[in-house]
Write a protein that binds this DNA or RNA. Structure first.
Lengths: 154, 154
DNA sequence: CCATATGATTCGGTATCCGAATGATATGAC
DNA sequence: GTCATATCATTCGGATACCGAATCATATGG
């Protein structure tokens, strides 16, 4: 019942054992591993949320920004990059000529599929040391935390 | 037994549901929340691993770099910052005058304690929506993943 | 028709990391 | 001892990812 780890002394707690710290570090690791697998496609992790969101149909840039949780200027950069890969097109909204409707090209749709494969491979790499029970628990908890905060993007 | 989520069609999977993706995003969130709580102390997340490692006694800069998992030049930057806070001292190693032994000052020790408090608060914020079972599972899995890769630092 | 709001863009700034080049010191071959 | 080589810290330039303020075009409502 008693946890044996803190035996007797009032010892300063370990920061590296906090969830905040480990989540930061593992997030950084995940990003790096994912980026490495995306690199051959010319993609970077931040592009993936865009590719995924656009599967459902065209969106304006501000809609993308809000969905992903970044500012409008970041979206401009990402779309410039995706456009240079021919993954997306900007189309003026005829009903409101200020808006650009962003639509996925067939190339973009294909890149999305390959990116998903890369994500799956990264998962395998990241989770190789876990037993099935841990894996289930992790997925469930991360899903809960992400959903709770509406983290679609990045 | 059969997973109901992929019913009939060959539908492109969801990248935002992969562990790699969610871990990236949640790691980013953790870092931001932790940074916000550290800001009043003049610290940033990356300083914390240094403060913690030095609790055990002085270390050379390359030893810090290896323990934390960053390059030597990053350590130089972090130590410049910590030094300007009077949190650490650089002391030439008399046995090898190329080395700088980094030692924690009383101020640094105190900042470490306050940083730990900030990390604990961040955990509370981050984990508020989880039930005890999920919390236990998360800690166990993150601990396993972090330990497996020797992630001390940030 | 004009004031104001909104969408996209540009520009400059911040934070974090890396790798290559540099200078000081140590070490080992001879 | 001396010289080549290795190692430690540092500096410098570059990459990535983000933000916020300013700008321009277009809409909208009085």
């Amino acid at each position: 019942m008693a946890d044996a780890s803190m035996s007797s002394m009032e010892w300063e707690g370990s920061m590296t054992q906090t969830v905040a710290f480990q989540l930061s570090k593992l997030g950084q690791l995940s990003t790096a591993l994912f980026a490495a697998r995306l690199a051959p496609l010319g993609l970077r992790p931040r592009h993936c949320a865009v590719l995924e969101l656009l599967r459902g149909g065209p969106l304006a840039q501000l809609e993308l920004a809000r969905a992903i949780g970044v500012t409008a200027s970041v979206v401009v950069d990402m779309l410039d990059e995706l456009q240079s890969l021919n993954a997306v097109r900007r189309v003026r909204d005829t009903e409101d000529r200020r808006r650009q409707l962003i639509e996925l090209t067939p190339t973009g749709r294909d890149l999305g599929r390959q990116a998903f494969a890369a994500a799956t491979e990264t998962d395998a790499e990241l989770l190789s040391g876990l037993d099935p029970a841990q894996l289930t628990a992790l997925r469930s908890v991360l899903g809960a935390m992400a959903a709770e905060r509406g983290l679609t993007g990045r």
